[in-house]
Amino acid sequence: MAAAAFERRVLRRAAEHHYLRVRLELPDGGARPNAAQFKQLVVTALRELHGEVGAALPVDVLTYEEKTLSAILRVISSGLVKLWSALTLLGFYQNRRCAFRVLQVKPCGAGWLPPDVSSGSKLGRLPKPTAFS
């Protein structure tokens, strides 16, 4: 077979979706949301800040771990700011204080780092993967 011809494509701002790794913080004790309730909470957050149009924004919960309350969300790129702001401003889950921590934001699927990345840093900013500790 003949060797393949060289071809190069540069895609700028081409990602259709953005990905967020988030963690929900709840006071100790009390019920933890299951996956469906978690998704409902995200939709509620969007509705509170952006109304019905915001609530219609397609957001996918790709993974959700009930134990750690952490999830990977996928959102269409044009809705990234809407989702992020809605999550940040959400303060209550079932009349209990809660907070969403956005740990990573990635424009490409394969750009996600492994979940063992330390999450102790401040919002939106992560240290290097702590594979060495």
Binding site: A5, V10, S77
Partner: peptide, 12 residues
């Protein structure tokens, strides 16, 4: 608009 990001694809 999402922040700028680049994906370069090459084939050979």
């Amino acid at each position: 608009r999402a922040p700028r990001h680049l994906l370069v694809c090459e084939r050979s």
